[in-house]
Amino acid sequence: MGGADIGIVMAYSAGIMLIFMISWIFLKPLKFLGRLILNSILGALFLIIFNYFGQYTGVYIGVNEITALLIGILGIPGFIAILLIKLLI
C-alpha cells in the first residue's frame, strides 16, 4: 500500500510541475508585451507633455516612425536620448 501512495504523489507532483512550466512559457512573452506597452504609454505621455511646453521654448520633437519606435521600445530613456540628440544637433 505504501508503494501506490508514493506513485500517486509523484504523479501529482509531476502534473503540478508541468502546469508551472507551461504557464511560465506562456506568461514570459506576456510580461515582455506588457512592459513594451507600458514603455510606449509613458514615452508618448512624456512626448506629448514636452511638445506642449516645447512650443513656448522653441524645442519641438517631431513624431514620426523612428521616434515612435525608439520611444516605444525604450520608453523614458528613449525620450531622453531623442531629446539629447535634438539639443546637440
Rank of each mutant, 00 (worst) to 15 (best):
L88R: 08
G43N: 00
L88M: 08
I49V: 09
Y56C: 04
P29K: 10
L45M: 12
S13R: 04
F32T: 15
G15M: 02
A68Q: 11
I8P: 01
V59Q: 01
I73V: 14
I61M: 09
F50I: 03
K28T: 13
A4E: 06
A44N: 05
G43D: 00
I19T: 07
Y56S: 14
L45W: 15
I76V: 05
Q55H: 11
G78K: 04
F32A: 14
N51G: 08
L47H: 03
D5S: 13
G3Y: 13
F20L: 09
I16C: 03
L69V: 13
A44Y: 13
P29W: 06
F53N: 10
K86P: 11
A4D: 05
G43W: 03
I82Y: 12
G72T: 07
G58I: 02
R35Q: 13
W24I: 02
I76K: 02
L27W: 14
I71V: 13
A11I: 14
G34N: 05
L27Y: 09
L42K: 03
I61V: 14
L42M: 05
F53G: 10
D5Y: 14
A44K: 02
N51T: 07
P29H: 05
G58Y: 01
L33E: 15
M21V: 10
L83H: 07
L33V: 15
F26L: 09
L70T: 07
I76A: 00
I6S: 06
T67M: 03
Y56N: 09
I22K: 14
G72E: 00
S23M: 10
I66D: 08
M10R: 13
I71Y: 10
M10I: 14
I80T: 07
L42A: 04
Y52V: 15
M1T: 11
F26R: 01
L30C: 07
I71R: 13
A81W: 12
A44G: 07
K86A: 10
S13P: 00
A81L: 10
L42I: 11
V63I: 13
L45I: 11
L69A: 13
F50Y: 13
K86M: 10
F32Q: 15
I19R: 08
I85H: 02
S23E: 11
G34H: 02
L83A: 06
L70N: 10
L27M: 13
M17L: 07
S23T: 11
G72I: 06
G54I: 01
G7S: 08
V59C: 00
M17D: 02
L87R: 07
K31M: 05
L30A: 06
G7Y: 11
F32W: 15
K31A: 01
A81S: 01
G43Q: 00
A81K: 02
L87A: 00
M1I: 12
G62W: 11
V9P: 04
I16G: 05
A11E: 09
G43I: 03
Y56A: 09
I48W: 08
V59P: 00
I82A: 08
L70M: 11
L70Y: 10
I16W: 12
I25T: 12
G58F: 00
I61S: 05
E65A: 08
T57Q: 09
I71D: 14
A4M: 08
G58A: 05
L69R: 09
G62T: 12
K28C: 10
I66Y: 12
G3D: 09
K31I: 03
